[in-house]
Design a protein around this nucleic acid. Sequence first.
DNA 1: CATGAATGAGCATTCATTCAT
DNA 2: CATGAATGAATGCTCATTCAT
Lengths: 205, 205, 205, 205
Amino acid sequence: MSEAAAFEPIGKRERAKAANRDAILKAARRVFAQLGYEAATVRDIIRGTELASGTFYNYFRSKEEVFEALSDDGARRFKPLLRAARERAETFEQYLHDAFSAYFHFLLEERNVGERPLDERQPHVRTDTPEMIAIYEEVRLSLEDAAMRGLAPRIDSDYLAHACIGLAQEVGAAMLRRTPPDADAAARFATAFVLRGIEGAARND
Amino acid sequence: MSEAAAFEPIGKRERAKAANRDAILKAARRVFAQLGYEAATVRDIIRGTELASGTFYNYFRSKEEVFEALSDDGARRFKPLLRAARERAETFEQYLHDAFSAYFHFLLEERNVGERPLDERQPHVRTDTPEMIAIYEEVRLSLEDAAMRGLAPRIDSDYLAHACIGLAQEVGAAMLRRTPPDADAAARFATAFVLRGIEGAARND
Amino acid sequence: MSEAAAFEPIGKRERAKAANRDAILKAARRVFAQLGYEAATVRDIIRGTELASGTFYNYFRSKEEVFEALSDDGARRFKPLLRAARERAETFEQYLHDAFSAYFHFLLEERNVGERPLDERQPHVRTDTPEMIAIYEEVRLSLEDAAMRGLAPRIDSDYLAHACIGLAQEVGAAMLRRTPPDADAAARFATAFVLRGIEGAARND
Amino acid sequence: MSEAAAFEPIGKRERAKAANRDAILKAARRVFAQLGYEAATVRDIIRGTELASGTFYNYFRSKEEVFEALSDDGARRFKPLLRAARERAETFEQYLHDAFSAYFHFLLEERNVGERPLDERQPHVRTDTPEMIAIYEEVRLSLEDAAMRGLAPRIDSDYLAHACIGLAQEVGAAMLRRTPPDADAAARFATAFVLRGIEGAARND
DNA sequence: CATGAATGAGCATTCATTCAT
DNA sequence: CATGAATGAATGCTCATTCAT
C-alpha cells in the first residue's frame, strides 16, 4: 500500500477524501438554498450525501464551517469576474455595468444550483446564501478601489458602497422573481441609476 | 394612589399584564436583532425577561406571533410618518427626503430600545427586524404611489422601489455603525442619490 | 347578610356552591367519556364549565378526586337497583336476570349522558367510566352475597364474580355497539349463560 | 472469541443494538403494565432502562410504536399456542380447555417478565397489556372458527366471544392475584363454566 | 369565594457531537 | 478513515397548581 502510494501520490484515499468533501459541499449548498442557513441542520446535509453522519466531522467542524467553505468557494468563483471588470474598465460606467452584469448573471447561475425548487416558506428572513455574502464584501472593496483609482467621484465611499450593494441585492432579488429574469436589463437599470445617483450625491457633499 | 384609582380604574392585574407583555416584546426585539428571527428561540426571549417560561404562552402563541406583534407595532409607529411625508410633499425631492429622514430617524430610535447589546456577532444571516419588514412594504407602496401621482418619473417602479429599499437598508445600517450616527446626513445622501439616479434610469428606459 | 342567612339557611352562596360543583361534575363526566380519564385534563373540565380555572380547586383537589366523586355518584344511582333486584329475587335466575338487566339498562342510559358523539380514537385502553368502576365493585359484592345466601351454588365465588363481571363488561360493550342495542336480549343471554355455567363450574369443583 | 466470531459474525454493535432494543421493550412492558398505556410516557420507559433519552428514538418513533412491537411480540408467541389447540382439539371441551390453559399459562409467564413491581396502584384504568390486546382478537377469531366448524353450538357468536374474553380476562386477573396462582385450576373452571354456559345460552336463543 | 395570570416541572422530540468498532 | 449508535442538552409547548386581587 505504501508502495502504491509512492507511484500514485494522489491515491484512492486522497481522491475519496476530495470526493467526500465535495459531496458535502454540494449537499450543503442545496440544503442552505432550500431551508436557509438557520433551518438547515448538519443532519440535513449528510442526509443529502451517501456518507455517514460521523464522516461530516472529518471534514468540517460544524455547520458554520461548511458555510464558510461555501462562501470561500463562491468568492473564489466570483472574484475573478469582478477583477476582470475592474481591469477591463476604461470608464466608471463600463466598470459599473460589467460589475452589475457579472453579479446578476452570477445570481442566475447560482439559482440553478439547487435543483429542486426553492422552498418559499421563509417568511421574513433574508438568508443570504454563502456566495452572496462573499460577494458582498468583494463588491464593497471593488467600489472603494474604483473610487480610490479616481474612476468614481470621491464622495462618501462607505455610503456609496452600501448603496450599491443594497441596490444590487434588492434589484437582483426582484430580477429573479421575474419571468424570464433578464440580467442584462437589470444591469442596465442599476448602472444608469448608480451612475447618475453618484453625481447627485457628490454635488450634495 | 386612591385618587389615581378614581380616574384610572386599572388594577394591579391589568398593569402587570401590560408590563409583562411589554417585557416580552422588548426582549423579543432585542433577541431578534441580535440573533436573527430564525436563530432566536422562544426560550431566548423569555430568558430575556424575568418571567417564567410558561408565561410567554399567556401572551403569544409562538415566536411567529411575537414577531407579528412587533411588526404591527413598528408599522403603527412608522406609517403615520410616511403618510405625513407623502401628504406634505410638494416636490418629489421633498417627499424622498422626508421619507428617508423619517426612516433613518426611526432606525435611530429603534436602536436605543434594546438596551444591553448582548452578542454582536450576527454570523451570516441578515435578519431584518420586524419593524423593518413592516416598513419595507410601506415604503414600497409609498414609492409606487408617488410614481402614480406623477411626482416621480414613470420608470420601472418595481426596480425603483427595490433599489430605494435596498439602498435605505444598507445606508441605514452603515449610518448606525457611525459615531455619532447622523440621520439627516444619511437622508441627504440617499435623497440626492435616488433623485438623480431615477433620472438616469428613466433615460435608460 | 348574617340575618338573611338566618332566614335562609341555604343561601345564594350555598346554592351557587352546589351549582358549581354540579357543573364541574357534569363537565367532567362528559370529558372523561370523550377523552378518557388519562387524556382528560383539569383544563378540559373547567373549559366545559363557565368557571375559572382556580375555582376547580375550591371543589376538588385533583382530577383524581372528581373522578372519585363521579364514581360515588354512579354507585349511588346504581346500587339501589342492584339492591332491589337482590331483595325481589326468589330464584337465583331471577336475581341474575334483574341484575344483568339493571346493568345493561344502566349502560344504555349512561351512554346518552355525553351528548356529543364519543371520540372513537382510543386505541387499546379500556378506560372504564367512573360509574362502571363503582358498579364493578357493587356487582362483585352482590354476587358474593347471593352465594352466601344460598341462592347460588357454593362454588369458587371469587372466580364466579369475576367471570360474571368480565362477561357483563364485554357483553355490555358489545351490546352498545349494536344498532339498536337491546339490553333485554343481552340480559337474557348473560343470565342463561351464567346460570348453566355455574352448574358446570360447580360440578367441576 | 475469534472462534465464536467465525460461527457468529455478529459484532459488539449488533449485540448492543439488540440488547438495547430488548431493554426498551422490557421496560415498556413493565411500565405499561404498571401505569397503563395512556399514563405511561416515553420518559417513563427510558427511565426504566440505562439508556439516554435520545436513544429511545433510535429504536421506536413513539410510545405507540413500542406498544405495537410488544403486541406483535405477544401475538407471535401466543398465536401458535392457540392454533395448536384448535388443530389438536377433537371436542369443543378439549379445545376450550387447551385455549384457556394456554392463555392462563401465558399470563403467568408474562407476569414474571417485569421484575420490579414498582407501583401497584393502578387507579381506575384497566389497561390491557399489549399482549392481551393482540390475544384478544385471536381468541375471538378462534371462537368464531370453532363455532363455524360445528364444535360449538351456533349461538350468538359475537356475544359468546365477548363473554369468553371478558371471563378469561377477569378470571385470569383473579388467578394472578392468588398465591400461588394455579393456571390449570383456572382453566378447568373457565372451561366448565363456558361449556355449560353455552348450552344455556343456546337454549335461550 | 371566584378569578385568571404566573409558575415551573414535565413531556415529546430533535440534533450536534463523540467514539467504539 | 468511515461508520452509525449513544448521548444529553436544548427546544417548543402543556398543564396542574398557587395566589394576589
